[in-house]
Write a protein that binds this DNA or RNA. Structure first.
Ligand code: FES
Ligand code: FES
Lengths: 141, 141
DNA sequence: ATAAACCTGACTAAAATAGTCAAGTATATA
DNA sequence: TATATACTTGACTATTTTAGTCAGGTTTAT
C-alpha cells in the first residue's frame, strides 16, 4: 500500500497555494518551480481540481489559480477525491467463485478492509488544508 | 493509495490457517482451493512468512503450514511487514533540490504523511489474527 | 519407491504510474 | 492591437509495479 505522486503533488501544490493570500492568483509555473513538480503534470492535476471546484482559475497574464473555498473547508478527502486518489481496500472480485467475491459470502477479511478504509478516511476527513499550513508554519518558528 | 494482492492474500491465507487447529498442518493446496488463490503465488508468500517466523513448515506427505505463534500474538503489522507490503507515505526524494527532499528542509506535507503513516500503523498494530477469525465467526452465527 | 507437499529463482504479461508533447484558447497589459 | 503569459485539453509513452506463471528442485510419510 502506498500513496501515489498524484495525490501527494495535489496536496503539496494546494498547500503552497494556501500559503499565499488567496486574492492574488498563483501561477502553476511558480508552484512548479517552488515545489519541483513538472508543470505539465501540475496542469493535469489542477484541471481535475478545478472541475471539482476546489480551485478557481484566472486566465491571462498575471493569472493563475485561487482557492475556491476557505482553507479550513477544504479537507484532504476532497483533494484526494478530486484527483482520483482512492483508498481502495476491499477487493471483492465478482468473477471468482471461491474466496473473495463480495456476494452473499464475504471473504474472511472483507470486514477488516472495510474497517481500515473507514479508519483512513476518518483521518482524511478531519485534516484540512488549514491544518497543514498551520503545522508547517509552527515548524518554522 | 491501495492495497496490493500480496498483502491481501497473505492475510486471507493466514486467517484461513488460523481457523484450523494449529496442531494439524494445513497444506497450501487446500488454502489455494478454499480461497481461490494461485498455489504458486501462495508459495512465494509463505516463503516470506516462514522466514519471518510467522508460520512453520512441515515437509513431506501430510505436511503443510502451522502458525508459529498464537493467533492473538500475530498482528497485521507483522504480516504486512513479512510480505513487504509497506505503507510508504513519505516520499522525500534525495535527488530533488526543490520541494520534497527529506533533508534539513522538509516539504510542506512531510509532517502530514508521517502522521498518516502512524495512524495506519496503529490500526495494523492493534488488529490480530485472532480478531479477524472472531469477527468472521460472529458474522456466521 | 513414490506421491504429496514444501522450496527457490527466474521469467513475463498486463496494468498502473508519472510523466511528456503538441496544439490550442483566453486575457491583461504595453 | 500585438504579445506574452498562463490556463486547457487530449493523446501519447517510458518506466515501474503487480500478479502472477513456470521449471526444477528437495524433503519425508507411507
Ligand atoms: S474483500 Fe470483499 S469478499 Fe473479499
Ligand atoms: S515528504 Fe519528506 S520532504 Fe516531502
Amino acid at each position: 500500500m502506498k500513496l501515489t505522486s498524484k495525490g501527494r503533488y495535489a496536496v503539496m501544490a494546494l498547500a503552497d497555494l494556501a500559503k499565499f493570500d488567496n486574492i492574488n492568483p498563483v501561477s502553476l509555473r511558480d508552484i512548479s518551480l517552488r515545489q519541483g513538480i513538472s508543470l505539465d503534470y501540475l496542469e493535469q492535476i489542477f484541471s481535475k481540481l478545478r472541475k471539482k471546484e476546489i480551485v478557481q482559475s484566472v486566465r491571462g497574464t498575471q493569472g493563475g489559480y485561487v482557492l475556491n473555498k476557505k482553507a479550513k473547508e477544504i479537507k484532504l478527502t476532497n483533494i484526494f477525491d478530486a484527483v482520483d486518489e482512492k483508498v481502495k481496500t476491499v477487493q471483492c472480485k465478482k468473477e471468482s467463485k471461491k474466496g473473495c467475491n463480495g456476494k452473499s459470502t464475504k471473504c474472511l477479511t472483507h470486514n477488516l478492509w472495510d474497517e481500515l478504509e473507514n479508519h483512513i478516511n476518518n483521518f482524511f476527513e478531519e485534516k484540512s488544508l488549514e491544518d497543514l499550513v498551520k503545522s508547517s508554519n509552527e515548524r518554522r518558528i
